[in-house]
Amino acid sequence: MREITYAESVREAMSQVMRADEDVFILGEDIGIYGGAFGVTNGMLDEFGPERVRTTPISEAAITGCAIGAAMTGMRPILELQFSDFITIATDQIVNQAAKLRYMYGGKASVPVVIRTPAGSGAGLAAQHSQSLEAWMAHIPGLKVIQPSTPSDAKGLLKAAIEDNNPVMFYEHKLLYGMKGDVAEDSYTIPIGVADVKKEGTDLTVVATSIMVHKTLEAAEELGKENIHIEVIDPRTLVPLDEETIIKSVLKTRRALVVTEAVKRGGYGAEIASMIGESEAFDFLDAPVSRLGGVDTPMPYNPTLEKMAVPQVGDIVQKVREMLNRA
């Protein structure tokens, strides 16, 4: 096993599938010679040429719908949407078209498209380039939603997404692109809808998504020194959600905290928390299911304020102590 970055692993997944399947191609803004805004497609133009690595005009509605129309007619496009904030411009095509075509057409259409898009704060890009809007898409029947947190998960889940016959939203985190991890060299898939226990523990379950998985693992280190052992679960896919793994863990630890970067109000953390509350684990809970999430504000530019806007390691440590009456 060798170590590669999250960005490299996303690229490797795409390249391996594109070598094996002529119907797979990528389109997006600046993905050719520029290599994409975050360098994810670096070098792909040289290998696959401009027909299969298609640099598009800045037209999010048209390029998203174009990918969907191509998917309906036999291709398997991967669309790189330069920032996940730009989903606002492509929303009709994702929500009203991709998600619904199969159902409204009586099961005749299939739309095997993957929309890859970088989300999240921490890069100093302020309010219009730093959001975590995954709850919007998770709300729409017909879409699958994936949020990988490690290089290895990104590679396996992206391959699964490309092979899936449904529209898949694939949220990458821009701060994770440079993160290194062990990634197998061969082409492999990780099934969509299977959570991963990133760390086993006994005292409290933390369900964390995307970059919050890493912050929670850091918090776990600190808490370990206090003899508090948390279990860290990464759902990896929001839709479908692996409820079983989460409930099983909560039945063991009897306490659950959900941590997301997205604004807490109306976020997907609320969905996970209420799912736990409605499950058989409710009767075994020793504390209310709790949430940490972004504050109710657009993302500020100032780096100190930006950090304050989303949960940090210290916030997670503090919250866990409170939930265990150890504050």
Partner: peptide
């Protein structure tokens, strides 16, 4: 819609079909 006949479907969204038709043409 009748995909077998090449009818990719009516659309309730005004101008919703333009990007889809463009994509079908790309295929």
């Amino acid at each position: 819609a009748d995909l077998d006949l090449g009818n990719l479907g009516a659309n309730g969204i005004v101008a919703g079909g333009h990007p889809l038709a463009t994509g079908a043409a790309l295929t």
